[in-house]
Computed example of a mutant assay.
Amino acid sequence: MDQQLAHALADELVELTRSLADLAYDLGSDSDTLRRHMVSIQSVDRITQAQLAIADILRSDAPVAARIDGVTLETLADRLRERVAGNA
């Protein structure tokens, strides 16, 4: 993938992540909404973490294995390893 495109996509992911995180914060600020939708709001947090990890991968020029090893979300790293290996 072209490096400029990869960086542009990473920037877009970061912007989307900020918007999603702001939305989750707004929803979580209301105690009734937080109680009713705690699991969903936590899911939004996992999604934002994954988006930032993907943005980091897109920006990196390290070998693929090293990029994936840098992902701190274990389930995401495992899925990426499987997909890169052609098992998914």
Results as ranks from 00 to 15, higher is better:
58 L>D: 06
85 A>Y: 02
10 A>I: 05
82 E>V: 08
32 D>V: 13
49 Q>V: 13
54 I>G: 01
76 L>D: 10
23 L>V: 14
80 L>G: 07
34 L>V: 05
8 A>H: 09
36 R>Y: 03
34 L>Q: 12
32 D>Q: 14
42 Q>K: 07
37 H>C: 07
1 M>W: 04
84 V>I: 13
38 M>T: 04
83 R>G: 04
76 L>V: 12
31 S>K: 11
43 S>R: 11
67 R>D: 05
11 D>F: 01
65 A>L: 11
7 H>S: 12
65 A>H: 09
45 D>Q: 14
40 S>R: 05
67 R>I: 04
79 R>P: 00
11 D>L: 06
77 A>N: 11
83 R>W: 03
56 D>H: 06
88 A>H: 09
27 L>F: 10
21 A>N: 10
9 L>C: 10
55 A>D: 10
27 L>T: 11
9 L>W: 04
38 M>L: 09
9 L>M: 12
13 L>K: 03
34 L>E: 11
63 P>Q: 12
18 R>E: 08
57 I>P: 00
26 D>V: 15
37 H>E: 09
62 A>P: 01
40 S>D: 08
28 G>L: 13
3 Q>D: 13
10 A>M: 07
43 S>G: 12
46 R>V: 10
80 L>Q: 08
64 V>H: 01
12 E>K: 11
29 S>K: 13
5 L>F: 04
27 L>E: 14
9 L>S: 05
1 M>Y: 06
4 Q>C: 06
